[in-house]
Design a protein around this nucleic acid. Sequence first.
DNA 1: CGTCCTTCGCGAAACGATTCGATGATTGAC
DNA 2: GTCAATCATCGAATCGTTTCGCGAAGGACG
Lengths: 340, 340
Amino acid sequence: MQIGKHITIKDVAQKAGVAISTVSRVFNGLDRVSPETRAKVELAVKELEYSPNSRAVSMITGHTKTIQMLVPDFVNDFYGSVIQGVEEVLRNNDYMLMVCSTGDSQEADLSAYIKRFFDVIDGVIAIPSNANIGNIQSLGKPVIFVDRAILGSGIAAVTADNAGGTYLLTKELIRAGHKKIAVISGDMQLNVGQQRLWGYRCALSDSGIAENADYIACGAMYEETGYRSFKRLMQLSNPPTGVVACNNLICIGCVRAAGELGLRIGKDISLVGFDDHVLASIPNPGITVVAGQTIEMGRRAANMILARIRHKDIKEAEVSMPVELIRRNSIRDLRASPAK
Amino acid sequence: MQIGKHITIKDVAQKAGVAISTVSRVFNGLDRVSPETRAKVELAVKELEYSPNSRAVSMITGHTKTIQMLVPDFVNDFYGSVIQGVEEVLRNNDYMLMVCSTGDSQEADLSAYIKRFFDVIDGVIAIPSNANIGNIQSLGKPVIFVDRAILGSGIAAVTADNAGGTYLLTKELIRAGHKKIAVISGDMQLNVGQQRLWGYRCALSDSGIAENADYIACGAMYEETGYRSFKRLMQLSNPPTGVVACNNLICIGCVRAAGELGLRIGKDISLVGFDDHVLASIPNPGITVVAGQTIEMGRRAANMILARIRHKDIKEAEVSMPVELIRRNSIRDLRASPAK
DNA sequence: CGTCCTTCGCGAAACGATTCGATGATTGAC
DNA sequence: GTCAATCATCGAATCGTTTCGCGAAGGACG
């Protein structure tokens, strides 16, 4: 309608014939206002289509109703799901979501990103890409990690049941008669990498299978890691018959490598993965995975940060979300027919 | 460090022994300041680690250095790529990115989302999910559409060469000897749906192939549409031998349906798609697609909005980005061996 | 030596809201 | 009828900046 100036509280006050402070009081409703005055003001507000300028409000009140979210990138749809959950909750609570990608770089310092926009945010939700978080907790604003936690950082996190997930996955291979099982995991500085490897180890030792150092590959949680490690594993003189891929990207890398090597998944090689994704869900052959509720993880994180903003004294808590095994056709049953 | 109050310009002024306005001037460097004074101030700024409060700045200057981005959702990695490009440019220009998902709903009114945060943004970049854009251009802030344009809305847009893409795709099928070619496209209200269908039609008529109404399916650009339409097409008494899927999701739906029907892509049925995605790029069999530079589209849009913020008088312009054909193995060559 | 002009720095107003203490009107009790 | 208490409303200060107008100092010139 009007391209020019925006309606201010002053305009409303003038139109309603009351003081500025009175208009403010009918909005924030702390103090009592007589019914007639309130009616006059509300009429003016409606006619003028007034809504308070949030910048001005935040100067006084100190809060901006904005949460900053830091993710490694936006292209991985796993991160996308988390953002989706966060944004949903925030929107319903009249908060805004500011996003920032930190990139893959191992040196990216999270606290630098936060400092940059420090004065316009009330809190931070981050998916850290490394353990380099600077003096994040001294910033004085609530921070929550999602998907990955940083051990000993004292920062609350919402994660998947990492160890439980790879345990299930590995057990599934063992149940089908596999003994030579490899794992491809990520950075050991992050809990995801550590815990997912740990679940694999537990499953092995529970079943009395000895670990083989050659079968353990660690890198970063990227497709490249999966691709390279898979090829290396297959070139071993005594290659594994089953592979546990510790995230969606690694799994995709494995599939790509298998394709190039002419290995049929579910027949020549068995593959299971952490996190569900399109490639795994299409029955060709369809890959057995454990899947967490990624959107729900985002929702939880958002609710946690909101709670911390409202009540400053909430202490750290780690939320671990259950994962579910989705059986598909990527495991060859070695009990039926002997290994090739 | 200090949990309590933040450092203000006042603290800097006091420490440097100058007036507040002087500090401001060394920051904004419009007016001249003597070298010694400047040095004193800069020292104080460094020691105190001062940075101006952007809320206060924006109260005066009127701009917030924040762009709002509206997307249907965050899970589709196509949208993710666009966001990635936008965010990259914005970050490098010291702008912030606020995101909001509008959902799939056909009634979602874009201008309502914008109004909600109107006073904290300088401009809007949107991927509209329908043609219901309200009185968006009367808002008085620059708006750019990405991926999809709305015909006759008078709003600038960055899109892929839609017609050109499906033209290439369809031609590729024709070149391999296909004559019975179906297309699955999206909403005809949006230019994507229209133009992609148009490219298919042009390719057909250029090659003297008559259109068959049964072979044209329109829905929404979702997996469900691809899945259903593909199944319907295959149940026709005279089914097509080739299918053009007009976006990544539709293509995924087709692959899923083909799998369920036991049809092998590249053998029993030929499939080509608009937009690249993981499923298409894995050689199993690998799907021929046309791919736009999605991240680049986001970058362009961001640069356009920045330009419009700085120079208010830029008039509308439609940017169409070229697409590239990526040949893989999803087309059966009918010239070599007769159709089964 | 006085005047004028330039340069540098200061103080105050303004942006749009919240909030607290003050004011004036109304009411109730004695 | 007087005084105190209550209630609705108002005005002013405040948040942290930018920006404009003005004054002081100092150099150039007649």
